[in-house]
């Protein structure tokens, strides 16, 4: 009986948390975007976007290099190393770019967002905004949300672009794949709508999920050191799982067999 009871209590807890998260997002988005808030979004773009560039670029480079190395050793057996370009480009644009960017973003920027908002709550900064008649949803939550939504697709594109260059470095410069075939077969194989746009759509969905989870976990955290540490961990765990799960669903919808 007590097992059923705790199961019920947990379910109710989760469902109300989803409700609170939806209300928070709604409150932040319904707020009319004001001109005054644009500098706030720019500042957050710097924090979540520009400051994540290095880790995104380095990871993109290495992933592209590893892909080329792995791809080459398999393709060369069939004399198909000319197809290295599309292999690297398609896997990056369709999957690795959006997914790995989202995972890195969750670890690099998501955890920081949660900790920042959680500490703002703990140090009464959110309360004091409310008492100053400034809605923290507009002032704190909304700019961070929009910055995340804008930054993630751009980071994913940069990730893929650097990865393709990394593939070129290993495949063409080191392993001797023909540069012409690397680029030209890539150009003829990669489809704008099917591959590039779908990749961007994926990363928009991941941006929504990761930023939403990160902000909500901070906003809803228990304002103690233990509570914030738990919230930060949950942000990374939940958003990574959500990204991987959603990636399967999105892939099935976008590239599934018709």
């Amino acid at each position: 009986m007590s097992f059923l009871q705790s199961l019920g209590a947990k379910t109710i807890g989760k469902v109300t948390a989803i409700g609170r998260a939806a209300l928070m997002l709604f409150g932040a988005l319904v707020a009319m975007p004001r001109l005054k808030n644009i500098p706030l979004i720019v500042k957050q773009l710097y924090v979540v976007g520009v400051q994540s560039l290095l880790i995104i670029m380095v990871s993109g480079l290495f992933i592209g290099m590893v892909m080329a190395l792995q791809g080459y050793t398999i393709l060369v057996d069939y004399g198909a190393e000319g197809s290295l370009g599309p292999m690297v480009a398609l896997s990056l644009l369709r999957e690795l770019g959006p997914v790995v960017t989202a995972l890195l973003f969750a670890g690099r920027a998501g955890s920081a967002l949660t900790a920042e908002i959680g500490l703002m709550k703990a140090t009464e900064q959110l309360s004091s905004l409310e008492m100053m008649a400034v809605d923290p949803l507009r002032r704190i939550v909304a700019p961070r949300f929009w910055a995340g939504m804008l930054a993630m697709p751009m980071l994913a594109i940069i990730f893929s672009a650097i990865g393709i260059l990394g593939g070129h470095l290993v495949g063409v410069d080191w392993l001797g794949v023909d540069a012409g075939s690397y680029w030209s077969i890539m150009q003829s194989t990669v489809d704008w709508n099917q591959d590039v746009v779908n990749g961007v759509i994926k990363s928009l969905v991941f941006a929504l999920v990761v930023t939403w989870i990160a902000i909500f976990k901070g906003y809803d955290s228990i304002p103690t050191s233990e509570g914030i540490s738990k919230a930060t961990t949950e942000t990374v765990v939940y958003s990574s799982l959500a990204v991987l799960g959603l990636d399967f669903v999105l892939t099935a919808l976008m590239f599934g067999i018709e």
Partner: peptide, 30 residues
């Protein structure tokens, strides 16, 4: 709430702004 204000125990200053900007904050907002 614009007609009331509260001094929190911790002060609750915004840690990413200077003292000047903290005091200017409500003026700039309202």
């Amino acid at each position: 709430r614009r007609r009331m204000s509260m001094l929190f125990q911790s002060g609750a200053l915004f840690t990413d702004m200077s003292v000047f900007d903290n005091v200017a904050f409500p003026l700039r907002e309202h």
